[in-house]
Design a protein around this nucleic acid. Sequence first.
DNA 1: GATGAATGAGGATTCATTCAT
DNA 2: AATGAATGAATCCTCATTCAT
Lengths: 218, 218, 218, 218
Amino acid sequence: MSDPSTLPALDPSRRKGELTAERILDAAETLFADRGYAGTTLRDVATRVGLRIPSLYNHFPSKDALYAAVLARGIGPVLAILGEFGVEDAQRRDPGSVIARVMALLQRHPKLPRLVLHETLAGGQRLTPILRDWIAPVFGRAGEMVAASPGSGRWTPEQVPLLVLAMYHMVVGYFASAALLADLNGIDLLSPPVFAQQTELLREIVTSLFPAETPSTT
Amino acid sequence: MSDPSTLPALDPSRRKGELTAERILDAAETLFADRGYAGTTLRDVATRVGLRIPSLYNHFPSKDALYAAVLARGIGPVLAILGEFGVEDAQRRDPGSVIARVMALLQRHPKLPRLVLHETLAGGQRLTPILRDWIAPVFGRAGEMVAASPGSGRWTPEQVPLLVLAMYHMVVGYFASAALLADLNGIDLLSPPVFAQQTELLREIVTSLFPAETPSTT
Amino acid sequence: MSDPSTLPALDPSRRKGELTAERILDAAETLFADRGYAGTTLRDVATRVGLRIPSLYNHFPSKDALYAAVLARGIGPVLAILGEFGVEDAQRRDPGSVIARVMALLQRHPKLPRLVLHETLAGGQRLTPILRDWIAPVFGRAGEMVAASPGSGRWTPEQVPLLVLAMYHMVVGYFASAALLADLNGIDLLSPPVFAQQTELLREIVTSLFPAETPSTT
Amino acid sequence: MSDPSTLPALDPSRRKGELTAERILDAAETLFADRGYAGTTLRDVATRVGLRIPSLYNHFPSKDALYAAVLARGIGPVLAILGEFGVEDAQRRDPGSVIARVMALLQRHPKLPRLVLHETLAGGQRLTPILRDWIAPVFGRAGEMVAASPGSGRWTPEQVPLLVLAMYHMVVGYFASAALLADLNGIDLLSPPVFAQQTELLREIVTSLFPAETPSTT
DNA sequence: GATGAATGAGGATTCATTCAT
DNA sequence: AATGAATGAATCCTCATTCAT
């Protein structure tokens, strides 16, 4: 994200300001993901960035705006990528690969699920528009993918949205529980081996739910 | 939860006192579940109960204690019931029925999952002991049940905890998303028909994952 | 204002609270009159009362509300008294006595003119409604009084409001300048002798403007 | 005030610089007159000029200095002109013409009275020296003029300063109330017709107070 | 058991100012 | 001359808590 070498020489002063904004976003993302909106203090953010509180206001006009920016920066790219498959993948024989790719994507944005979950618990009051505009379509497309999947014959149309939701929860909840399990059992869910195991598990679960071979007998 | 009709005529003053504590717990439970610990204010609680803030201190010594009491009151009965099956049910042929019963149990305590999820997201810092003492054993027992299930041959021992976790997330996440979906799509996940559908779906999913009859052929 | 001896024994606790509120109003009145709204800080008010800032919020919900209360408490009684004459006095032969009585009234509320003047300078933005409801009628009545005065034949109907305004400014401005002149020349405009002189002057001025005996010839 | 058209072609860069300072003074004058010192923010000033805050510091070393400059620029010319008459006019038969000329002068500097009034209310603490040096002499000269006026026989020497003050307040208060009345009644006191009426009214009032013809009969 | 009053600590935000660019 | 960034101080206000009543 902050890779100066790849960028053509910008006006250095602007560059610096943008970097600071990015660092603020990084700090805020972590804190919001950990503690939620109410539990996060601008003092925490500032301290983490190595600034004084008023300096934050040189980059974001309010705590709310900072939160929105964190969400936008986090959700945007993920949804963009999410939007890419779905068209082609619905036709594939392997729905399990989709969930594996989602996991891989989220592995690079592990704070996002917690961020979204905080919002979800709060009823999305603060940023319902963002959620409405961004998440709803993804759920819709996911439903279409499920419906188009080979093994979807098992499920009634009414079940499809709930099925998507359940898979969503399996994925998102995994990230949500990571911190707690690390604290409780010393197991780091986000460590590569465990993560690979989880991905494999999800793939198997999906495969179970969409038994691709079923139509072969027909 | 606060069901005065079932109580025999108590000494009115004492009963009133208990009722007040109960009413505070009710209000706090709702608010903590909705907004988390940091997002909930004693003012909110007091207003919801129809008291002034200092009165809360006649019943609970601090906000933290109130939170702990809410968690204890919420988690306790559920875990108690959860503890009952497991022994017998592990022997049964139908792991799906277990999850159905959990759903039925949580339907009567719908705020509990959100409460726990808030804690989970926060890393359980505030009340790790409660979680350690209460939740960890349940997970352990659930793992044993899964391992003892007829269809468990599919899963390696390493996968079992992750499998339990995934099912846990499917259940808990469902309650967590209820408020948001109600707000977003107008769908009330907690309405009886949808809830029944979800329960049935989970049962089918579990059945898929533990194909009880399959091994009969082997 | 705070005269406990005349009041029947109230519930002491309530009494105390009301006294505190009154003391806050006193302090705020002085400060708002001296420095205006923006120039007055709650810290100043609290310090002057001998409280900490948050305690102010036990009595007034916001700085704005405190300001409104100060204005209401200050303007209310004055306007009430102002409203009393006008009916009868319009019939009198001596318009100068009215202004003398206004001066006597304001002598007991010397901060009020400065308070109102601050508002006036600010365009009354903050409390236009109060001004509209309270001051406008007084001006209207004053205009009627002027029009009904014996010597009013000199003035055209269009001049009457401007005449009222000019007299208003003579009165109000006197109080506004008091602090400055005390500071600059050491003259205390509010000292009884000077004040009596000013009252007499105003009476003469008004008498000049409404030469009561003139109509006798007509 | 900032009338570029009358200026011969200056060195553009220098001219632009001066213009910027002038524009800052214009903006600040309006804001200080409207909201007083405490109620005016450098952000407001900068926004109104179309600059960022730090740029103001290229032209004025502090908010206080800016305020002083506004006052100096506003008061200076007016006092200069005010100083011109007095000598000659004291001899004239028509004291009403003096006040008419003051009004005409202030019509071109309508913010000045409000600026001064803000200072007056604040006790002149901030800029007492300016007031002492500039305003006191004017009052003194005005007193001399009044004493030298034909109709001054009515007034005792002790009354003269108070009389001057009262007339001062009639004039200054008129400008102070302009904004409020515009807001309240939609009457624009500064519109030419109303202003002419007010000037005429003041002339009549002064004439009443100094009945020039009186000595003729004796 | 309930509450008005008081308060230390801390919340987000604004302000005037400085400095490097 | 203009400005983005940074900041100490102070703004209004809220919070959890205590205490006397």
